[in-house]
């Protein structure tokens, strides 16, 4: 013990004022590391409990999703018996065939893909442009325009006035209601602005000396440097677009050509007796083939969640930075 303590002191304060050679420092650091990694009984109990807890947490998170996948690949009639856990008992892809033959799902999938692509692109351009404008030091209305947008984060008119506004703007019953109103979101703008503000001013100044206008500066100089934060915002917007159903229900209930995947899924899943017609949707499909409500529902759920589950693990580092900027600094 005394040996290590001496070494530790040596590491922290130098050995009798003499300079330590790099090898010595390395040796001492290794020793210190070894010491800090040694665990007593209490430490072991903690590590074991913690590991068990986190494994349980991961299982509780994953199990329902895996269970849904297992049901979706199981034979419909067989699935009614229950007791299917992480693997299908009687393998079948009939449910998927049924789902892909449902008119609403097919239309909804097309609309959802379109709104995700168009909506993400337009929102990214709009948010980035606004963030660019309010992060320019010279801009005369820098702080007032920022405040104008920050306010929108906390105050909103509410569902009814917004809907009446959309009606008079002609957005009800159109595809564009998914794109235009949500194009600018103050939260995303603030994330982008914080990032752009941290870029050195000299970039802009030297470009201006070379005769570049603001559009060129935005497109050629700032944007390439903002790729990581652009990816973050694009991810946020895309997930929101992919998962939204409420706008389809509220604004396009009477326009089945603009239904979305999630809204169709909701109609399929909802077992509220009030919406009796929708329960019929699943059982209707079930009648014609050998699939059942539960297998069709599971298959439709899997279809809507698969694209996101495949993509998100690769974008992890982007949303981690984005959230940190938005949450801690903003």
């Amino acid at each position: 013990m005394s040996k290590i303590n001496k070494d530790e002191i040596a590491l922290n304060y130098g050995a009798n004022g003499k300079e330590l050679t790099p090898e010595e420092i390395q040796r001492l650091k290794r020793l210190a590391k070894k010491k800090s990694h040694r665990l007593d009984a209490g430490g072991w109990i903690f590590v074991i409990c913690n590991t068990i807890f986190l494994i349980l947490f991961a299982l509780v998170t994953l199990y329902p999703v895996i269970n849904t996948v297992a049901y979706s690949f199981n034979d419909g009639l067989d699935a009614l018996r229950g007791n299917i856990y992480i693997w299908p008992r009687k393998f079948s892809v009939e449910s998927y065939k049924t789902v892909f033959n449902m008119h609403g799902i097919v239309v909804g999938a097309r609309v959802t893909v379109l709104r995700t692509l168009i909506g993400t692109f337009t929102a990214l351009v709009a948010n980035a442009l606004l963030a660019f404008v309010i992060s320019r030091k010279r801009f005369l209305f820098k702080s007032s325009l920022s405040l104008f947008w920050v306010i929108t984060m906390y105050v909103n008119g509410g569902m009814v006035p917004v809907m009446i506004l959309f009606k008079y703007l002609g957005l009800l019953g159109s595809f564009w209601v998914y794109i235009i109103p949500g194009m600018v979101s103050a939260f995303n703008v603030m994330v982008l602005r914080t990032y752009m503000q941290d870029l050195p001013d000299e970039l802009e100044e030297s470009a201006q000396l070379d005769g570049a206008g603001y559009i060129t500066i935005f497109a050629r100089i700032i944007s390439p440097l903002c790729k990581p934060v652009y990816a973050t915002v694009a991810l946020f917007v895309a997930v929101g677009q992919w998962n939204s159903w409420f706008d389809a229900m509220l604004y396009n209930r009477l326009n089945p050509e603009y239904t979305t995947l999630q809204y169709e899924l909701m109609r399929l899943l909802s077992s509220v007796s009030k919406q009796g017609g929708n329960v019929g949707l699943a059982s209707q499909a079930a009648q014609s083939t050998q699939v059942t409500t539960i297998s069709v529902r599971s298959a439709a759920s899997v279809v809507t969640m698969v694209p996101i589950i495949i993509v998100y693990p690769f974008l992890q580092r982007y949303f981690v930075t984005g959230l940190t900027i938005g949450g801690v600094k903003g």
């Binding site: 329902p64 992919w242 998962n243 159903w245 999630q262 899924l265 599971s298 809507t304 969640m305 998100y312």
Partner: peptide
């Protein structure tokens, strides 16, 4: 564990409530 823990955030409430009902 962290990667798994993000997963449900990306699912819509429609799916989550559906899963919950089944569970």
């Amino acid at each position: 564990v962290q990667t798994i823990s993000y997963l449900p955030h990306f699912l819509s409430w429609i799916i989550v409530t559906g899963i919950l009902r089944e569970t």
